[in-house]
């Protein structure tokens, strides 16, 4: 007990530790880059990355690129959610298919589906629809998996309650099964959204059709590393923010439905 008290006395709040570690790493990098320990051209100091950030924000079209990337990702995730929830439902009601395909779906969810982009380039051409399709492909498997898991996990007693109240099959689904599996479906959508962002930025990077991915690719091609790193960190930060917002949103929605 004594040691626990001692360690809690000196413990720092996790949030502070998080920022101290990041600040420390940034400081170390700044020193390393300025003093020539690392190549300042390929690993520019955080201060010049910051200047790069201000520059791409002001004149490099960062805002536009972000709007395009996230609109695309949201569109892809919406498409993925519709297809995913419908497939999850099919796998739930058609037990044989569920048993036959669930493990394949799990394999698909963890496979680098972004590599299928040449196929979609041929189908849709070099435009936004290729990116949307790639994003949707990436987020459908986890959404379908979590939807099936949620529907399979609805407690039989809740379904029996519906039966004793003479619910129609449609009411049984919308008033019991769907809300009961909503927590799982939300988790699927949240994971799916992240997969969609990864795929969208990846495909933008590879096929040059606009958005943050293309912006980073162009900056890299021009050897403008401070701005390129600024772009990369920006994508990471926005993804973290996105993850955090959807997490809060999920909690809020579940306590209010």
């Amino acid at each position: 007990m004594a040691s626990t008290t001692a360690s809690t006395r000196f413990a720092l709040p996790p949030l502070l530790i998080r920022f101290l570690v990041i600040a420390g790493l940034v400081g170390l990098w700044e020193i390393a880059s300025n003093s020539g320990w690392v190549n300042a051209f390929t690993a520019p100091a955080p201060s010049s990355v910051w200047k790069g950030f201000v520059k791409i924000l002001a004149e490099g079209g960062l805002g536009e690129a972000m709007v395009l990337t996230f609109t695309t990702a949201l569109l892809a995730a919406t498409l993925g959610a519709v297809v995913g929830i419908a497939s999850g439902y099919m796998l739930h009601i058609w037990k044989a298919a569920g048993e036959a395909y669930t493990s394949w779906l799990a394999a698909l969810a963890s496979a680098p589906l972004v590599l299928l982009y040449p196929l979609f380039l041929v189908i849709f051409g070099r435009n936004m629809w290729t990116v949307v399709a790639m994003g949707a492909i990436g987020c459908t498997p986890p959404i379908a998996l979590k939807a099936k898991e949620g529907l399979d996990g609805v407690k039989p007693v809740l379904l029996n309650v519906g039966r004793t109240f003479n619910l129609t099959p449609k009411q049984q689904f919308w008033m019991i099964m769907f809300p009961a599996s909503l927590p799982s479906i939300f988790t699927g959508i949240r994971i799916g959204l992240l997969f969609a962002i990864i795929n969208v930025v990846g495909v933008e990077f590879l096929v040059n059709v606009g958005g943050l991915g293309q912006l980073i690719a162009h900056l890299g091609d021009r050897f403008d590393y401070p701005q390129m790193y600024a772009g990369i960190f920006f994508v990471i930060l926005v993804s973290v923010a996105f993850f955090w917002i959807t997490e809060k949103l999920e909690k809020w929605l579940l306590s209010n439905t």
């Binding site: 407690k155 007693v157 809740l158 309650v161 039966r163 004793t164 003479n166 809300p179 009961a180 909503l182």
Partner: peptide
């Protein structure tokens, strides 16, 4: 199932949502 007969179950059955 019949509307004249109502059931209360042993397991937890209040809808949590």
């Amino acid at each position: 199932c019949h509307k004249e007969i109502g059931m209360v179950f042993q397991e937890e059955s209040a809808f949590p949502w």
